[in-house]
Design a protein around this nucleic acid. Structure first.
Lengths: 226, 226
DNA sequence: CAGTGCGCAACTGTAGAACAGTTCTACTGT
DNA sequence: ACAGTAGAACTGTTCTACAGTTGCGCACTG
């Protein structure tokens, strides 16, 4: 049992995969707007690679959920609709409630607590992108207590999509998001989790998520006017 | 509101997608064994299409979960491991328990009941593939009561994968599966659901799924000897 | 004979060019 | 305002080519 080779791995990643990852980052960073098309030839030319490879990369991306394909129109960046936002949030609600169905064990509590601490810290930074990420990470930590990689991956997909929507919509947000308010929303939930009160934790989680959903729906509706 | 055009849609599907669907079917039908490689050139030649297109089709397939990619080895049909089977079943457990967290409404109950009836009918057919499908469909109906398309899609992915494993392992199964036993396992669950006893339904579901998982693990373990 | 190195065949990963069919856009005539 | 249309811009798909990897058998070696 040699641990001497620990962590040693060959490069082992195809160009298409690298392009896919890169594009994913750009999209999340806002380089592409919702509904925008990803033109293969343009990307291929700009990156100096074959169109075939770009095509493959984009297929990989599709799997990540940030884009979808339309026949003869190629890859299109997803855009939020009332319905899709609703589904995202209710799916989250169910998963998190499932994770909170029973009081957390010590190790689980510790990891959730760590994510919460991180959220508290980051909130002070006032950088919206970071705060959103930390927020979603905290919720991800709750789901992770289920200890199931497939559920984690699924949930991660939901939050990635949601994160994109939130960033895209942030331009339309009127009032300046109050960090104190964000924490105020998470505190009761964290309290209930700490207290080992499963029922209350579930209620808090559901309420927190639902009220967030409502707020996002409002912003979304508003973004079609201004 | 003209209903005269109801159901009329143009072909609107790319060849890659068709190939992907076709391959998916073949895999589920057992035309490819777990661990088998999907060789692009062979498929392309056999179907009279370009290798690029096959490649794209296979990328689409990957998304469906029945195959995964290994660098420089291309597409490989997934194969069950104790760990992957465990994750599949516990993920199912969490989702179904979530769906049964509250008593079902009338409409929801009706659809679950319909799926149960179908299962009862199909069981009489003694055709293993059909029974497995109906079984998983019944459980899918339970999850569907959550009314969330994303959760449904995720759950469908789990069951598709599971269905493939079950069919692949069925060759190794010694005892002849007793249909009566299968129904005997679902009955208490259906009873609890009908009774509107959420807690009991959750317990039954968890127990049913867990005991199934254990049985599959045994078969899996046994399949490495014989 | 276990083990190493070599070579060959079979594939995958990527490139590049080409073309038919579709969508988009701007222009046309009415 | 509006149907029609021509052309540009792309996508979907095919074909050809080639470098890099993997799998495998075979000879070679200590």
């Amino acid at each position: 049992m040699t641990t001497a080779l620990e962590g040693l791995v060959a490069q082992r990643t195809t160009t298409a995969q690298q392009i896919a990852d890169g594009l994913s980052e750009r999209i999340l960073a806002g380089a592409f707007r919702p509904g925008e098309r990803l033109r293969e030839s343009a990307i291929a030319a700009e990156l100096g690679i074959a169109r075939n490879t770009v095509r493959e990369a984009v297929r990989l991306l599709e799997h990540g959920g940030l884009i979808r394909f339309q026949a003869n129109r190629g890859a299109v960046v997803i855009s939020p609709t009332p319905h899709s936002v609703d589904e995202l949030y209710t799916a989250r609600e169910h998963l998190e409630a499932a994770a909170l169905a029973a009081p957390l064990g010590a190790a689980q509590l510790a990891s959730v607590e760590a994510a919460y601490d991180n959220l508290v810290t980051v909130t002070a930074s006032l950088r919206r992108a970071d705060i959103v990420a930390a927020d979603l990470l905290f919720h991800g930590a709750i789901v992770a207590t289920l200890g199931n990689a497939r559920l984690d991956a699924f949930y991660a997909g939901l939050t990635r999509e949601l994160r994109f929507y939130l960033m895209a919509l942030s331009a339309h947000e009127r009032e300046n998001e109050n960090p104190r308010r964000l924490l105020g929303e998470h505190e009761p939930l964290m309290d209930a989790i700490r207290a080992g009160d499963a029922e209350r934790a579930q209620r808090e989680a559901r309420h927190h998520i639902a009220s967030n959903a409502a707020r996002v729906q409002e912003i979304l509706a508003a973004s079609f006017e201004g």
